[in-house]
């Protein structure tokens, strides 16, 4: 049995032949179902992508304005309250958020579905309704992270000489804040959005288990229990590749924002 699966070969050799396969877009087969790993990943892709896309979009939409406003009114009531909320929500583990949210909004209040996933093909509204709770729990820490960086980056930018110049010109607050400051502050913000995707990937594994979403995260957890190495390897490789790709794209975005950066 072990021989047939190649498990008795030295680890380096196993890894080498797996890597060889990867270079030919062959991730191997599952030890459990004998299905090609690539096919399994393809089947489980939609829920994970949906969850992460919704989380990412809404997190950025919430976090950036909050961070900008907190920096503009530094030391004010809004700033102090959001700073406390940010450190708290950054500290709550994803599963704690997930279970608490599901218990309150699904079990007790019955406003939202408890668990499961509705494919996008069955309509945007049911798809979205089902994603609200998972995305909210996945996004809690991510929003806090982006808001904190946005605030810090804005504070630093608002301290720059060219902001003083803009004020000396007599420009209005809105123009100073959103054109002069936010654009200059955006490189660290964009960077953290990209780096934070790692957090989303790790969080997705947990969130999908909490909400029983049949995505890649749940497949990871299932495969660990079955000790299905080729699948785990394949998922780790797939996620890492996606993560690197996202951050490469972000590097290209820099050049649009900052004329001093050239590739």
């Amino acid at each position: 049995m072990r021989h047939a699966l190649g498990l008795d070969r030295p680890f380096a050799l196993q890894f080498g032949s797996w890597l060889w396969g990867v270079l030919h877009f062959d991730l191997g087969n599952s030890l459990f179902s004998n299905m090609p790993v690539a096919t399994m990943i393809g089947q489980r892709l939609e829920p994970t992508l949906s969850l992460m896309a919704v989380t990412l979009v809404f997190s950025v939409l919430i976090a950036v304005p909050v961070g900008v406003w907190a920096a503009w009114r530094k030391g004010g009531g809004f700033d102090r309250v959001t700073t406390v909320i940010a450190v708290v929500s950054f500290s709550i583990p994803v599963f704690a958020c997930g279970y608490a949210g599901a218990w309150l909004f699904a079990l007790k209040l019955g406003w939202l579905p408890v668990q499961g996933y509705t494919p996008l093909s069955e309509g945007i509204v049911p798809w979205f309704r089902q994603l609200i709770l998972p995305a909210a729990s996945l996004g809690t820490a991510y929003v806090a992270l982006i808001a904190r960086i946005t605030r810090a980056s804005m504070l630093e930018t608002l301290d720059q000489d060219y902001i003083r110049t803009a004020r000396a010109k007599g420009l209005g607050d809105g123009r100073i804040l959103f054109l002069h400051a936010l654009k200059n502050a955006s490189v660290p913000i964009i960077t953290i959005i990209g780096i934070g995707v790692a957090m989303l990937i790790g969080g997705a594994v947990v969130t999908e288990s909490v909400f029983v979403i049949p995505g890649l995260g749940r497949l990871t957890a299932e495969s660990i229990l079955r000790r299905d190495f080729p699948v785990i390897q394949g998922i780790v490789l797939f996620f890492s590749f996606s993560y690197v790709l996202v951050n490469l794209l972000i590097d290209l975005v820099y050049a649009f924002v900052d004329p001093r950066i050239r590739y």
């Binding site: 720059q160 000489d161 060219y162 003083r164 110049t165 803009a166 004020r167 000396a168 010109k169 007599g170 420009l171 054109l179 002069h180 654009k183 200059n184 924002v257 900052d258 004329p259 001093r260």
Partner: peptide
């Protein structure tokens, strides 16, 4: 500001917005 009283500063290297 800008119309009645205008101002120039010490650090010309950092006083202009680098992205515009």
């Amino acid at each position: 500001r800008g119309r009645g009283i205008a101002m120039i500063f010490q650090e010309p290297m950092t006083s202009l917005n680098p992205l515009l």
